[in-house]
Structure formats: C-alpha cells, structure tokens
C-alpha cells in the first residue's frame, strides 16, 4: 500500500513498524520468560509428561476441522445469498442470525446442555462442534457479506449474459474471489474452536475426548498454581494456530489481483 522508492523512506517505514510492534512484543517476552522460569525447558517436558497431549491434540484437530468445514460452507452460501441475490425481508433474516452472537457463553451453557442431550449428541464431538459452528457463523456471514459486496456486480452481469447458472457464478466467481476473507474466516474459526474451553468442559464427559484447552488445568489446583507450566502449556497450545495462520497467510494477499475470470 505504501510505496517507498527512496531508501530513506523504506528505512522510515521499517522503523515505524518496529516501534509499533514493541508494545505487542513486550507481554509475549514476559510470557515466554515465565514459561521458562524455574525448570527452564523442564516445564515443557513436564507438560508432555502429562501423557495426554497427543490425545488432546488429536481431539482439538477433529473439533476444529469439523467446525471450520461447517462454518465455511454455510457462511459462503449465506453470504452470497445476502449480498447478491434477491431475498424478501433479507435484513430480518440477517439480524436474526446476528442476534445469536450476542449471548454470553455462560448463559448459553445450561440450555445448550439440554439441547445437546435432546438431539442425542451429548458426550460426542458434535456436542462441541455444532454450537461452536453456530456461534462462529454470524460474524463470518457478516464479514463475508461485506466482502462479497465489494465484488463488482458487473462480473455477475457478465456471467448472466453468458448464461451461467447461479451456482456456476458462485463456483467460478465467489469462491475464488473470496479467498482472502475465506482464509480470515478459517483462521477466526480455528481460533474460536481451538481455544474454546467451556463447551468441551461441560458437554464432553469422556476424558478421551477432551480438548487441548484442558491442558493447563493439570497444573492449577485449589491451593497451588504452577504458573510456569501453565504458560508452557499455553505456548504448546498456541503453536499449531500460529503455524496454520502462516500457512494461510498467502491467501490473504490474493484477491482481485489473483483475478477470478481469466
């Protein structure tokens, strides 16, 4: 976005971004320091020594991937519909979806417990996946709708002139052109599902299905709190998300530049 032809300007930009990052870096340094305090890397060994890291990790992957798939498919359909298609009373549907975003999780727990029991998914991965997806969809739809609004109508008009069906238009215009926002939605959903703590805690009973957010609790108890290992667990939990983000990073940069109708 910025163009820096002169080296001095380039240096200035570099300096600016470095200064801006310092407040963000500082707590991270304190955190890493904390995770290495005491026994140093021994803290990390202790976390792995709990022995369930692998199981927790696998479960979190299952939960996150399923949630992401549901959210992506439903969101893209809905966002396209809201943005480019004719729906009577469109805004009413839209705001009804968005309203679901406003309840605090604590309030949702008890009714969700009853719901998951009644549809027979309690103590399965679905008990966590379905509510997580339902909670992620509203904001994802909002984002994707705004993004698709930015795709020029002329593209769809052209497709229409060519006799393309709505689904063809979706497949060949919307899907490729929304890659940046899709990547963002995948990342957000991953964070939401990977980091969620209360839902797996309450809706899954079987220890073999618990997720990775329950890792730190091995080091926190009524009268003790081993902060060093809690922080080490947090680092271990965060790394997969950061790797996923880096992998998706390239997609964020494509958009119109990538060209949809070539």
């Amino acid at each position: 976005m910025f163009e820096a032809r002169r080296p001095s300007t380039r240096l200035l930009l570099q300096l600016l971004v470095t200064l801006m990052i310092i407040p963000y870096l500082f707590p991270l340094v304190v955190m890493i320091q904390g995770s290495l305090a005491g026994k140093g890397l021994g803290n990390y060994e202790a976390v792995f020594a709990v022995g369930t890291v692998g199981t927790f990790f696998r479960n979190s992957v299952i939960v996150s991937v399923s949630t992401i798939l549901i959210v992506y498919v439903l969101t893209m359909f809905a966002a396209f519909g809201f943005s480019k298609l004719h729906i009577r009373g469109k805004e009413v549907y839209f705001w009804m979806i968005l309203a679901a975003l406003t309840l605090p999780e604590v309030v949702l727990l008890t009714p969700l417990f009853a719901t998951t029991l009644s549809i027979g998914v309690y103590d399965t991965y679905w008990a966590v996946v379905l509510p997580l997806a339902a909670l992620q969809i509203p904001f994802a739809v909002l984002l994707a709708r705004k993004f698709i609004d930015g795709v020029p109508d002329s593209l769809f008009d052209a497709a229409r002139v060519d006799g393309a069906s709505v689904f063809t238009a979706f497949r060949y215009i919307v899907v490729p052109m929304t890659r940046p926002i899709a990547a963002a939605i995948v990342v957000l959903t991953l964070i939401g599902s990977w980091n969620d703590y209360l839902l797996p805690l309450v809706l899954i009973q079987d220890p073999a299905k618990q997720t990775i957010t329950l890792l730190p609790q091995f080091f926190v108890s009524q009268f003790s709190n081993d902060q060093t290992k809690v922080l080490a667990s947090a680092v271990i939990t965060a790394i997969p998300e950061i790797v996923a983000y880096l992998c998706l990073q390239r997609l964020f940069e494509r958009g119109l530049a990538a060209g949809a109708l070539k």
């Binding site: 009853a114 103590d123 703590y197 209360l198 609790q217």
Partner: peptide, 23 residues
C-alpha cells in the same frame, strides 16, 4: 472410579447442568 478434575472457575458452570441431567 473415574475422577474428572474441573477447574475452580469452571466447576459451578459445569456441575449445574450436569446435575440437572441424567448423565
């Protein structure tokens, strides 16, 4: 006996619906 350890903060939130159910 299977012991499930919950966190102090999570206990009340988790136990209430659990006790209301059959499971």
């Amino acid at each position: 006996v299977t012991y499930k350890k919950l966190t102090i903060d999570g206990y009340d939130a988790a136990i209430r619906p659990a006790l209301a159910s059959s499971v």
